[in-house]
Write a protein that binds this DNA or RNA. Sequence first.
DNA 1: TTGAAAGCGCTAACAG
DNA 2: CTGTTAGCGCTTTCAA
Lengths: 337, 337
Amino acid sequence: MPSSKTTLKDLAAHLGLAHSTVSRALSNHDAISQDTKDRVRHAARQYGYVANSGARLLRTGHSQTVGLLVPDIVNEFYATIAKNLADDCSQRGHQLMLLVSDDDPQRELKLLQALLETRPAGVVVALTAVPRKETLSHLAGVRCIQFLRVHAKVQGLTVGADDAAAARMAIEHLLSLGHRAIGYVGVSEALSTGAARLRGYKETLEEAGVAPDPALIALIEPSVQGGARAAAQLMDRSPRPTALFLSSPQLALGGAQWLNAAKLRVPGDVSVISYGNSSWFDLWGSGLTAVSLPIQELAATASALLFRESGEELSGQTSVLLAPSLVKRGSTARMRA
Amino acid sequence: MPSSKTTLKDLAAHLGLAHSTVSRALSNHDAISQDTKDRVRHAARQYGYVANSGARLLRTGHSQTVGLLVPDIVNEFYATIAKNLADDCSQRGHQLMLLVSDDDPQRELKLLQALLETRPAGVVVALTAVPRKETLSHLAGVRCIQFLRVHAKVQGLTVGADDAAAARMAIEHLLSLGHRAIGYVGVSEALSTGAARLRGYKETLEEAGVAPDPALIALIEPSVQGGARAAAQLMDRSPRPTALFLSSPQLALGGAQWLNAAKLRVPGDVSVISYGNSSWFDLWGSGLTAVSLPIQELAATASALLFRESGEELSGQTSVLLAPSLVKRGSTARMRA
DNA sequence: TTGAAAGCGCTAACAG
DNA sequence: CTGTTAGCGCTTTCAA
């Protein structure tokens, strides 16, 4: 009669063993005879024994739980890190707790508190722009990897993309095609990613002798709707920008939808370049030129760092910054005279 | 000195209270004075007290953990149910454990076993095509909602789309445009979804007096690469099919990429219709016609059912089947004479 | 190679 | 309204 109510003691009683012996057999302890292990495992299977992780946690003081805190799991970036973490967890016998903050600092705090109750082995986080103070202090007590978004106040390792370099790459590409009136659609500077991209945009323009025009900069929440609204705002001006840098895949999606709806021709009426990767980038028109992130590699790196042996110490505050690359497709072209 | 090593007893000692009183204060028990609650909460905050969920689980016998078992979290369907579940969990003070099977039955079993160790409140699953027997028996002991994919052997509620009706809708659309040689790209019949869609395809053709041609049916693993390969296989035949039904968004992505690469014109050379929803469907060419799922509604329903009060009993084996709808875009056209 | 025993931190029944 | 007490199931010494 299989039942998850069976305990170690039940098994032990059935087998005429001490429950400590059963425990050792199940955890494959050296000092247990193969015969005993076999008998125990058979009985466990027969009874449908399922260990109680609570008892283990209580005894050992820590769990095999790993947390992943992200603003949005539908976003391909975060889904990819989730996939990688899940893979590594299942290989190593860890569990993955998913915390979705929806970019709400209060919710983020609540989720993190609940995670800490499990005494997790570690956590990978992409924090909200302005986290609660308690969130930060909670994070100080855990092994923590920051993914993409980086807060200076959080210690631990950091895995991200070189966002400033990415923006620079995008703008240099547009400049090389003769564009000067380049619109920027981005997210709040409160986000490390938003700040870095905007900085890259401005600096690159300035170095080329083009003064950044505040009217060509639209900062907005990182949603599809936001992208559409920002594109509308920029393209409805006159004179129009001749090129657009959409600084995230979400924003790019909204922008692309709006451009389609507005019947603007790309790159005829406006060149468009995006940041990031999405499956649809090579499907839209003649392809959407983009500065691509090594997203898979970023995710794999974050996961590997989380699970690294404490032997291979990296200095207290280390950051891995991966370089983006330009993928030219059909949406950018030389500016018409 | 905040530290998550502080226990209830520490707090109690500091406050000169019994630890049971502290416990009650923290869980907002009725029979505790407001003053005591305030003092306790203040002290807890001050000491950075974090409860030990293991001790609670050990004592109560159940956790607030909810599991989500899916084959692939990058897939938008599953990411959406994850988002919905995460939302509801955080509202109700539950935790979300993410189990990604990668469509591997053995891994699926391992993940489920680990989940059961937490004595979860429930689980939402999209099982592999042929799960291990133990997986099924484990599921019998938990509150379980099947999402999209349905196994007859698993009891509990079921939330899915009417896949047969969806395929029928797609094929009827193509038939009405004059197509007869309609290729089908789908997944294994071992999956309930794969079987239902193929059945809808065949039956609809037969009812229209068209004998399904086995050479026009490509069953393949549900990946982007699979979609590309299947499209190639079907379109390289001669005579070519004049229309293609791509029976999942993943397959559609692969198919679209292959058609682009092969420089086939859509709908000029071939009409294409897909199943499901993806952000890029209206961005590809003049738009990809699709039979759309109420994906958000499905996810919300599954989550709501999981959290339903046991009061609102639904009969033992109930299934919610939501209807798809046809979204006409530019990729389907009347067959050329 | 196995057994005996202690105790992790919490909740809840019972007592006051 | 608060205190006392027992015990959840497990791991891990220490003994044998």
